[in-house]
């Protein structure tokens, strides 16, 4: 099976939350107790029961109509998932990277300690990993059981407007780039978020922070420094692992 990817076109999202519920339906994740806290986003955040969440954010435009951003958040299924890198040190086999599709999968059979989970979560630039009370990590599975049978992920299938797309990475990249070109005339800040690094590519048309704090991975550190940090990181974590 070819490398898979999503393209999430936020310009077409109406926040109907079909994806949010279809995800719960397929995974049989429960509805959790929530409260109205002054906005329409609910539940307030992702959880071990909520792998897909439409985030709502309202922004004032002085003298004009407000902007209301919808961001159907989910795991980005990174090309090189940092969560896995951490987990491999902490709880071997807790995170799996599927060779066939590129799906990053949390293994429900492997428990992780709360402190270790914290590091896994911290490693995720998109703040996706969550953990259940039983110490099992949870997040979007790319509906690997569906896609292995040639079906669309539940969230993509249920999307009415074409905001959610899924397919072979090459075609998805083409689609995303084509759409980016289409909307550039209307939205000068249009961009595809972290295209090379993730398998879930968001098209956003404004400052990413207006959508969600973790919409786009922060890219403020220069490459050189990052490489240096990376080199430092490897032996130390190994050491910690040995001590731990």
């Amino acid at each position: 099976m070819a490398d898979k990817s999503f393209f999430i076109d936020t310009t077409k999202c109406t926040a109907c939350r079909g994806c949010q519920i279809a995800c719960k339906q397929w995974n049989k994740n429960p509805g959790t107790k929530t409260l109205q806290q002054g906005n329409h986003q609910n539940p307030a955040d992702l959880s071990a029961s909520t792998f897909k969440l439409v985030r709502f954010n309202e922004v004032e435009v002085p003298g004009g109509e407000p902007q209301w951003f919808f961001f159907p958040d989910q795991c980005r299924h990174c090309m090189s998932p940092p969560c896995k890198e951490v987990a491999d040190e902490k709880a071997k086999g807790a995170i799996i990277h599927d060779e066939k599709t590129g799906a990053v999968i949390f293994n429900p059979k492997v428990k992780i300690k709360p402190g270790d989970f914290k590091e896994v979560r911290e490693a995720c630039p998109y703040d996706i990993p969550r953990i259940s009370g039983a110490g099992i990590m949870a997040k979007c599975t790319m509906c690997f059981d569906r896609i292995n049978e040639g079906m669309l992920p539940a969230c993509v299938k249920t999307c009415p407007t074409g905001a959610m797309n899924f397919g072979d990475r090459k075609e998805i990249l083409e689609k995303a780039n084509k759409r980016l070109e289409e909307v550039k005339g209307t939205y000068k800040d249009a961009m595809l978020a972290n295209t090379d690094d993730v398998r879930v590519i968001f098209l956003i048309v404004d400052d990413p922070k207006k959508y969600h704090k973790f919409a786009v991975a922060d890219n403020t550190i220069g490459i050189t420094r990052k490489m240096a940090l990376k080199r430092l990181f490897q032996p130390l974590t190994s050491l910690r692992h040995m001590i731990g």
């Binding site: 922060d218 990052k226 430092l232």
Partner: peptide, 22 residues
Amino acid sequence: SMKITRRTFLKVSGATAAGTIM
């Protein structure tokens, strides 16, 4: 500060692009 944090993510993917040295 040595942990992988959100801020260092792009470096990790960059590393893969550069090769499999890690």
